[in-house]
Amino acid sequence: MTILHRRLASLLVLLFGLVWIVVSADRTGSSTAGMIPAPQAGFPAPDFELQTTAGETIKLSNLRGQAVLVNLWTTWCPPCRAEMPAIEKIYNEYKDKGLIVLAVNMTYQDTPAHIAPFIAEYGLTFRILLDDTNSVGSAYQLRSLPSSFFIDRRGIIREVVIGGPMAEALLRTRVEEILK
């Protein structure tokens, strides 16, 4: 291939590239999520309705307008236990700014009798929800415990943290992001 042929080929490739960029532009303007709720950053958070340990019914979509941290946990999971004090601290620090923590216990794979002593042991003041049918675990495609979903005021998941324990600084940076 001569130099001229090579240059012509390069120019053609670049020209095709430019045409492809224009042709493949996303006209909808929101390639990330659309309107399909999914447990992934950029998507609307899947809705759920559960009861708390105090008997209160919480529906996630009713909390629109507030920043929500959904944390999936069990009493037997060591990293879940390890990150609870940091979550409690951050909750107390930011609750007046609009942070809500929904700690969803995966009751279907936990021992219900262990939940109340756990709450007392860590002095947890945020809402503890009971998922005894795996409805949230399934909607949030739970694969590892703990799993945390940081949901902004518009109901969009901004960050997902799989595994733990989450460091206090990580919680703080993510919470400040969803409170904006």
Partner: peptide, 18 residues
């Protein structure tokens, strides 16, 4: 499905790659 979009739906990563 997760492209960062610019004006007219142009994808940022394509501009950088080009």
């Amino acid at each position: 499905g997760d492209s960062v979009l610019l004006f007219g739906g142009i994808r940022l990563a394509q501009i950088v790659a080009w």
